[in-house]
Design a protein around this nucleic acid. Structure first.
Length: 214
DNA sequence: GACCAGGCACATC
DNA sequence: GATGTGCATGGT
């Protein structure tokens, strides 16, 4: 069965090709990156991750034994570094307590993991879903600023649509498959960066007329 | 020198 | 419940 959202996905996929998300060497690096990228340009996160690696700090045990000030220094380029140093340590505490490996975490199940992540201070819905989808390969859709922007610029949803409503829109109309959710969100970020940036309706955009519901 | 970036928590009304 | 504000670096 072909839904409008799937048609849109196929259009984007043909237009841009595979996005290869999440760019990282390990699931743990994805999770760290998910926290570091909050309200921050990805290029700044890359520098912070490189610094962590250079100091051997991209490791759960090492992060827990490193004080927040030192950790903050290493991730300084990612911005809001004092807050993120704290958030990193709180998250890693949980990560280790839940087994300390992606395999053991996955055994807890998507619903429970998401609930526990959201209960952690510093982890909101987008960060939680990024950790689950891109870090653990679990089928949960990641909604972000770009998702809202693309959908509203093309008048596909009202401006006051919530995170959960957008998430449900995708999950309810697509096959629940991590690989599909992975690529779709990455493509939305891609098209969101290239188009739909202006505050006005995205008229004349190459995707106009090829969107769901139009 | 503004404005934004792969958000979130907290205060205030 | 919804609206506003602090966090902070680095690129455009």
């Amino acid at each position: 069965m072909t839904t409008p959202l799937l048609t849109y996905y196929n259009d984007l996929r043909r237009r841009y090709g595979p996005q290869h998300w999440w760019p990282a060497d390990s699931p743990f690096e994805v999770m760290v990156g998910a926290i570091l990228t909050q309200n921050t340009a990805w290029s700044n996160v890359e520098k912070a991750v490189a610094t962590l690696k250079a100091h051997g700090l991209l490791d759960p045990g090492r992060i827990l034994e490193t004080d927040e000030e030192t950790l903050g220094l290493a991730i300084r380029s990612a911005g809001t570094f004092r807050i993120k140093a704290k958030r990193l340590r709180v998250f890693v505490r949980w990560y280790v307590d839940r087994g300390g490996t992606p395999r053991k975490l996955r055994a807890l199940g998507l619903a429970r993991l998401r609930e526990e992540l959201l209960a952690i201070s510093g982890i909101g819905p987008e960060t939680a879903d990024s950790i689950l989808l891109y870090g653990l390969g679990l089928p949960t859709f990641v909604v972000d600023r770009y998702t809202w922007r693309v959908l509203t610029r093309h008048a596909l949803i009202p401006e006051d649509t919530s995170y959960d409503e957008m998430k449900e829109l995708f999950e309810g109309n697509l096959e629940r498959k991590a690989s599909l959710f992975n690529e779709y969100h990455a493509l939305i970020v891609r098209v969101g960066k290239e188009h739909c940036r202006a505050r006005a309706r995205c008229e004349g955009c190459a995707l106009e007329g090829r969107l769901p519901g139009k």
